[in-house]
């Protein structure tokens, strides 16, 4: 089984990289982009039967920094 963890910055945490991407899109002529937030996707190949709680424990222990980030887990 696989899990996909999407890690994003918490709302309100300044995202300099997202802002730079936003500016670059504007420079390329893409109007109408109101904001950009950059995150990361971590794909896990897991033993069958791994629970979402176990993946959440991995997120809490290492994959995300709760000071600045939140995460979303999708099991497949």
């Amino acid at each position: 089984m696989k899990a996909r963890v999407t890690v994003t910055l918490k709302p309100g945490v300044l995202d300099p990289q997202g802002r730079a991407i936003h500016n670059a899109l504007g420079g390329l002529g893409f109007a109408g982009v109101n904001g950009v937030r950059q995150g990361k996707v971590i794909e896990l190949d897991l033993a069958d039967g791994t629970t979402e709680a176990e993946v959440a424990a991995m997120c809490g222990a290492l994959l995300a920094n709760p000071v600045i980030e939140t995460y979303r887990i999708e099991l497949a």
Binding site: V13, L14, P16, Q17, A20, N65, V67, I68
Partner: peptide
Amino acid sequence: LTEAGLLPGALMRNAGL
């Protein structure tokens, strides 16, 4: 030290990149 929880906060990418 921040990642280990010995100090609060986090150190992010410099604002000017």
